[in-house]
Nucleic acid binder design. Sequence first.
DNA 1: CTTAACGCCTGAAGGC
DNA 2: TGCCTTCAGGCGTTAA
Length: 275
Amino acid sequence: MPELPEVETVVNGLNKTILNKTIKNINILDKRPIKKYTPQNFTSFVTGKTFKNIIRFGKYIHFKFKNGDSIVSHLRMTGKYIFLQNTKNIINTSHVRLIFYFTDGSKLLFKDQRIFGTLTPYLANECIKEIEKNGLDPILNKITPHYLFKKAKNRTIPVKVFLLDQSVIAGLGNIYATEALFYAKINPQIIANKINKTQWKILINKIVFILNLAISKNGTSISDFKNIDDKSGEFQNMLMVYGKNGQICKKCNSTSIIKIKQSGRSTFLCPHCQK
DNA sequence: CTTAACGCCTGAAGGC
DNA sequence: TGCCTTCAGGCGTTAA
C-alpha cells in the first residue's frame, strides 16, 4: 500500500521517464478511476498535452502539463504506474485501467486491482482541493513539536489514529505510523492530547528518519507496491513491528509483538518497549 | 467542532 | 474440491 516513500519512488521514476513526452492518445479500459470528467472529456483534456514535471505532496501525485493544467492522482491501495519503452509490449495486462500513448512510441500504464485509485484533472486556474486539505509533509516541510502539540490539543483519539490523519501530517500511512511509534517508544493507544512536546519531538525525528530510510530503499512492497519499472521496494525487510505479531521484539529480545485494532486498522506494537 | 460508520473494490485466505 | 465468509485499508461522504 503506497505511502509517502512509495509515492516518492514512483514520482522519481516518472520524472526520469515521461518528462517532455507528449500524449498522442489514450485508452480508457475502465472509467472508474477517472474523477470529475467523462471518459470523452478526459480524453480531450489530455490529448496533445506535454508533461512538464511531476511532484509529490503527501500521498498525492501531481502531474503538471506545460500549459499549466494538471492531473492529481492517488494510488490508494493497489494503484500503480508502469512505464514501457516503445520496444516493450504489455506482458501482464491484468488490472490495466488506463494507457497513455506518447508520440515517441512509449507508454504509461495505470494499473489498479481494486480500483480505489484516482486520476482527477485540473485546469491551470483551479484550486486543487486534495492538496489544499493536506497537512504538513514531513519531507517537504519542517514539522515542529509545537505544530503537532497544537493540532492534538483537542483530539481524543489514539496517537496512532491521529498520525494517520492526512490533514495533520500528509503522507503517513499504516506501516510508517506504526514503525515510527515503535522507534519513538510510544504506545499507539495513548490519547493524542496526552503526548508532550518532548515526545512529539522524538516522534517527528523518528518519522523523518524512517521515511528517508524507506525512500532510500525504494519503499515497502508489502501488499504489492511496484515502482514504475515493475520492481519491488526493499524496505519490507527492515520492518521492526509491522506484520510481526507473534515474533519476539528485535529491540528487547524478550517480548512478543502484538497486533491490535484501532479505528478498524491493524496496529503492531511491543508492549515492553512501547509504554 | 470531533468521531464513527459506511462505501468503494477484488483477490487471498480460512472455515466447513 | 468448492462454496461461503472475512479480511485487507486510504479516503470521501454522511451521520451522529
